[in-house]
Simulated scan of single mutants.
Amino acid sequence: MASIPSPTIRARRLRRELRRLREAAGLTAESVATELGWHRSKMIRVELGHSRVTQQNVQDLLRIYQPSAEDRETLSTLARQARLKGWWNAYGDVLPDDYIGFEAEAAAISTFQSLYVPGLLQTEEYARAIILAGRTTADPDEVDRRVAARTARKALLSRDVPPKLWIILDEAAVRRVVGGHRVMRAQNARLIEACGNPRIEIQILPFVAGAHAAMGGPFTILDYDDPVLDPTIVYVDNDATTALLEEEEQVARHRLVFDHLRAKALDPDESAEFLKRVADEYPSQ
């Protein structure tokens, strides 16, 4: 799978830079929209990412902002890169939101999952069982494409410098029998194998830990190499709705919750032993 700069990340950088230049020029979104003959809502959509930023949009805005030659070159490059197609574009019908594009360049992925093993560590059969359970009316082709997309995501863990992956799993995620005992034995073996990877930390949050700070549901924190260029994002997904949170207060709140979960969960060595005990409980046939 060819590696290209994530268009999703570049589009986000482009929006942030355009807003920075507007503010540096002392201009309001309304005044810029008026000068360009745009509705004010279009400026808001462009800066918030609710509307695609075209090359022409960028040129029009740069004409008003009058940036330095260096900034102009940077923005032109970002605009070109934002129009590229990531591998996930081929699965646009089954990957409807931007999460995969943001995940593609993450330096660290910290996730809490309460009901199932996260996609990056799912076996194909486990993934298929999860997808079938959530989409009882899906046709076989759609299920196959969803499985293929989830499998393709795993290439992230094989890149030259893979992201640091920190997973906290509620005990329910490894106790719930998904797809039958054979599927669970293979899935559990995958988790045990991952415990030996120096780039992956797995912690189990046991039932005996009681109530905890993430009773409201799972979430994922995505950190990047340069937090100035690419600030942290929190992704919340409960199947009914998804949200990408970027405000500093929202990120700080979820990071604090994750720290509380880490403190309550078994440490990585204890978690590996826990997974081995669970594996022994599955019938061999």
Rank of each mutant, 00 (worst) to 15 (best):
E23R: 11
R80D: 07
H39D: 13
R182E: 14
E270L: 02
G210N: 03
G49V: 09
S76L: 14
A108G: 01
K42W: 13
A155P: 10
P218A: 05
S3H: 14
E73P: 00
L245E: 09
L191M: 08
R72D: 09
L21R: 01
Q55R: 09
E249D: 14
T54S: 14
I9E: 01
P67K: 07
E171S: 00
G119T: 10
G101V: 10
E125T: 12
L275I: 03
A2P: 03
Y235N: 02
T136P: 10
G180I: 08
H39K: 13
A173G: 03
A106T: 05
D280N: 12
R40L: 06
V174K: 00
R146W: 00
V257R: 14
S41T: 14
L115Y: 08
L27P: 05
V234I: 14
L157M: 15
R199F: 12
E73W: 04
G210A: 07
D170T: 00
V251F: 13
P218E: 02
E124K: 08
D280Y: 00
K85P: 01
R255P: 01
V117K: 01
P96L: 14
E247N: 10
L244N: 09
E248A: 15
S284L: 14
T151N: 14
Y126E: 05
E35Y: 07
Y65F: 15
T111W: 01
P218Q: 02
W38F: 15
K276D: 03
A265D: 05
Y282N: 03
W166P: 00
D239Y: 15
V208P: 00
K164A: 11
H260T: 07
D60L: 10
R80V: 05
A11W: 09
T136L: 13
R22Q: 04
I109M: 09
A29I: 11
G196S: 14
R176M: 03
E125A: 12
E270P: 02
I200L: 08
V147D: 11
R13E: 10
C195H: 08
H39R: 12
T232I: 07
P268Y: 15
E103T: 06
E125S: 09
Q66M: 03
W88S: 14
A25F: 06
T137N: 10
P283L: 04
R15Y: 14
A186L: 10
R52L: 05
V228Q: 05
V178W: 13
